[in-house]
Structures are given as structure tokens and as C-alpha cells.
Nucleic acid binder design. Sequence first.
RNA 1: GGGCGUGUGGCCUAGCCUGGAUAAGGCACCGGCCUUCUAAGUCGGUAACCGCGGGUUCGAAUCCCGCCACGUCCGCCA
Length: 574
Amino acid sequence: MYPLDQCKKEITAELQKVVTKYHYNEEIRLEIPPEDMGDFAFPCFSLAPLFKKSPIEIAKEIAAKISKNKWIKTVEVKGGYINFFINTTSLTTPTIQSILDKKDTYGYLKKKKKKVIIEHTSANPNGPLHVGRARNPIIGDTLVRIFKAAGYAVESQFYLDDIGKQVAILAWGVNNIRHECIPISENKKADHQYVGFYQIANERMNSDETVAQNISDIVKKLEHGDYKTIEMIHASYAPVLDGIKQSLLRININIDTYIPESTFMYDKSVERIIKKLKQTLYCHEQDDAFYLDMESFGIQGRNTKFFFLRNDGTTLYATRDIAYHQWKAEHADILVNVLGEDHKLESKQVRIALELLQTKILPQVVFYAFVSLPGGKMSTRRGRVVYLDDLIDECIERAYEEVKKRRTNELTDSQMRKIAEIVGIGSLRYNIIKVQPEKDIMFKWEDALNFEGNAVPFIQYAHARACSILGKTKTEKHEFEAAVLTHASEIALIKQLARFPLIIDDACNNFKPHTIANYLYETASAFNQFYRDCPVLSDENKELRSSRLTLVDATRIVLHNALDLLGITSPEEM
RNA sequence: GGGCGUGUGGCCUAGCCUGGAUAAGGCACCGGCCUUCUAAGUCGGUAACCGCGGGUUCGAAUCCCGCCACGUCCGCCA
């Protein structure tokens, strides 16, 4: 257990002890008061009706009975609140010790012996990733990192469409459209080269019935396991998928497993599911196709029919998705999906079907709103997009300009390039993750690439500053004496470092990756204030100097660990 | 028409789940701080009827109802 956990627990226990004498049995929930009013607060308002006294009197009465201990330094009553000021010397030593001992794993929670499958990205391999959906891999990968830190065994999965209409369109295009008819893409990556085939094929499909027929023939052959067709499809999308993987790798994302949809066709599990679904009370037939009537499950709208089998006997995306989820439920204890908000209905339908099939584990879903452009929605089909690769390039380029502006005289070009890469990629990830997923974001270059204020350079800079100080004292031993760190900025920074494990716990339990970004900003800010107030290297007092050095080192570790949770590299200089 | 989500200073965001003490930050704007560990920093200032209207409560940005705006979905697409 981490020091601050221990502290909170003991304050709660102390309160509990006093309060049970009054037959108050509600759970004690401590709050964090506004600045300068203490470290923890207990509001007494809800006790008023029980006590038949004013909250202020109650607070006074209870506060008088609180006995001070290792953690509780002073107790104050203000308004209807009991404010606790903790004994920082009790917190400082174990916190710093814990950071120095655990280093890269400081903040990590104890092992849970539970397996989590986090599905994210799962983009159709018919073109490059675009910014509209860029939140998906970033949120997904951040959750993967957070769950790992929270003690879970995690596997990330990309559900790969290798059997549906979208890849069939791409494959038809690749095989039937001449290269000269495709608009030339400047980017040499295969996903950029191939997307034109998909776009033109889409147009032809919509205007030419024979093409539409050819494509649906491909889908049918796929479902029947026609070997040659499968090979053809695979050859068409493989280079595109490879391009997608490369893009992900550029932003520090590696997905453990790619699960092809076809898996569940060929192992007959989709067939079994169809059979079971047909037996349910909610199944109906319409023109030889089958659907579940979702009306009694609270699904409303123009159409409450959830089709799972076409009239030609082929399956649909959602049908295969049900099979996939059943399979996942067999292989994990917790399932997490990261999906665009356009999947809300489908996800609900799949959930209902899974319930009908008595699936053991249902997925927790994190939905995100699309990133839009000032002119409207992005679309691969219509080619109205900003591609992720272009955004990455632009981020790095702009970061390079910023580095050059500041460090041309001190660093070599390759050093500056390296820093630009770290800052550029970090900027991209940070800007997307710092906003809660369900909030709409309008993509504007000037905002995305603003390098000031609450942005990643601020945090990375704080890390680089810490490294710079430490770099000058490599040979020194960092002795540590908690009692000498008494400056308000030092105390504030230590408390901030102590909070990190609680932040991880909260971010994990509530699927809120953006809280890590907030924490990082606050930590960097606390460090900058310390940096301003407490000179480290120039201090004459040896004990103070080395204790501060240790605090700098501890901050460096926490910033590094938290940045790592966001998949962002911590530069040693900037 | 219906479902789901979002609405917080000029702009962007946190807080909302679990109601509480002067609504917290950033950008922009104005004014200070580099002979001292990288000023991508720091200090101060201007700026908010928390979309609108009701309700619950001792107390509402937070919970409930209605309305408005935006996003998204309501395909034998994925």
C-alpha cells in the first residue's frame, strides 16, 4: 500500500471511530478541500438531520474527539467541514523512498490476477488511418497502459475486417481498376497508394450494377470459404494493413493481436450463433432474411429490426461481432472496447444478443466523439480527410521549428531532430488524450500544435529540467532528509508525487485516461514552482542540497512514469 | 419522429458519476521577472447570470423534468 493510501485510510478510520458512537453508519467519504484549507475534508452537513444540530456544531463536536496520530497534524473546523492537515514528515520519507525503490513501476498497483482484453482501432484495412478516428488508437493504447499499471494482464486486439463488403470493394478495385485511373498520392506508403482503388471502386459500385454484383459475389465466395477469393482479398488488404501498423508504431502503439473476422466464420461459431439466435423468441424472418426484434429491449427509432442474416445466407458485421465477443469472453475476465460514437446502436444490439446467448462477460465500452474538421466530417470514401501520417509529419515539423528557434546555437541538427520527434509525437497524443473521449473536438492545426501552456512541451520541459539538474551532479550521492524540506513548494510537490497511485486507480476504474494528462500538468506545474522557489545546485547547505536533489530525482521518475502511461517519451533535454 | 452524447469567461478544457466552502486551469489580451539549476518557464491583472426554463434539497455546474443548439445513429454497410 502506498503512503497516501495509508494516510487516507487512517484518517477515515479515525473519523469512523468517532462517528459510530453517534450511530452514524454511512460510508465516510473524504473530500479534497480548496487550497490552503487542508489536505482532506469531511463535510458534516448530512449529519445534521440525524444529530438535530447545525453542521458547524457537529463539526466542532466531532473534531474535538479526533485524536492526533502519525498522520493527523491538525484538525480545523470551518463552516460545516472538518479539515485535516496531514503530517507531511510522515508522508515525505515513505513517498520518496517508494519512488526511489520502485522507479519505473512507482504508482503501479498490486497484481490483480485478471486478464483484460482491450479492443481498439479495428479500422477497415481499406486506406490510411485518418484524424477523424485518431482518438481510437490513442485512447485504446492509453487504456492498455493504464490497465497494465493497475495490475492487470492486458492483451490489445485489433478486430480485422477481412471478410466484409469494405475489403471486398478494395479488392475489386485493386484487381479491376488500372493504376493510371487512380489519383496519385504523394505518400509512398502502401495504405496511401491503395486508398484510391477503394474510393474509385466505391464510385463504380454505386453507379454500375454489374460492379455492385461482382462485389457482392466476392462477399458470398468469402463466406463460403472459397480459397482463391480469400487469397485475393488477403493480397489486396495486406499492404494497407501494413501501412496502418507502421503509422501506429510511429505514435508508439503496438497492438498485440490481430483477430480476423473470418476466424469466426471458418470455425463455425457464427453458424452456431445464428442457429441459437433463430431459436429465440425475438427472431423473425422477412424475405428470407432473419432479424431480432429489439423493441422490447428498449431500442427505439424508425427501425427496431436487428438483421443478423441476409437473404442470400451471408452474415453481417454485427453477427460476426457477436461471435468475436463470445470468444473474447472465454479468454478474459474483463473486456473493454474503444468505439466511435457511430457504433453505439450496433454495440447495444450486440450486447442484447450476447445476453440472449447468456454470455458470461459483457464488454465495457468507451465511446469517443469524432474529430471533425472546420468544414465538416471526414470521410475516407469521399477523400475528405486529414490522414494521421500527415498530421504526425506536421507535428514533428512544427516541433522542429520550435526547437530550432531556441537551440540552434547549442545543439546539432540531429539532436534537434530527435527532440522534435519526441515533442511532435507527444503533442499529438497529449492533445487527443487530454480531452474526455465523449467530447466533440474540432481539429485545428493552431490548437493541436500550440506548444505553450497546457500542452506536452510544458511537461516534457519540466522533465528535461529535472534531468539537467541531475546531470550536473552525477557523481553525488543523493542523501535524503525529510525534515529539511519545509518550503511550501517542496511540500506541495511531494504531496503531488504521493497522489500518483491514486490517480492510476481512478483512471483505470472509471475508464478515464484524460485524468492522467491532468495529473501530469499539475505535477509539472508543481515542479516549476519548486524550481522557482528552491535553488538546488547553488544551495550551501549540503543536507538541503542533497535532499532537494533527491526530490528532483523523484519528480523525474514520476513525470517519466506518467508520460509513459500516455505513450509519450520523456526527453532528457529540450 | 425517436435513441444516445455534448453545451462552463472572447476561444479551449477540468470539475458532473459520488450535490457542499470564493467554479479550477490553458489560449488570447494587458503589465512585471533572465550577471542565479534551459524564459518551451514564472508572477500579477482584465474576463463566467456553468445553453434556457422549471423542480428536488438546508445547499445544484453537479440529481430530476421540459425546451433549445450541436454531434451521432435509427442500412439485408462496417
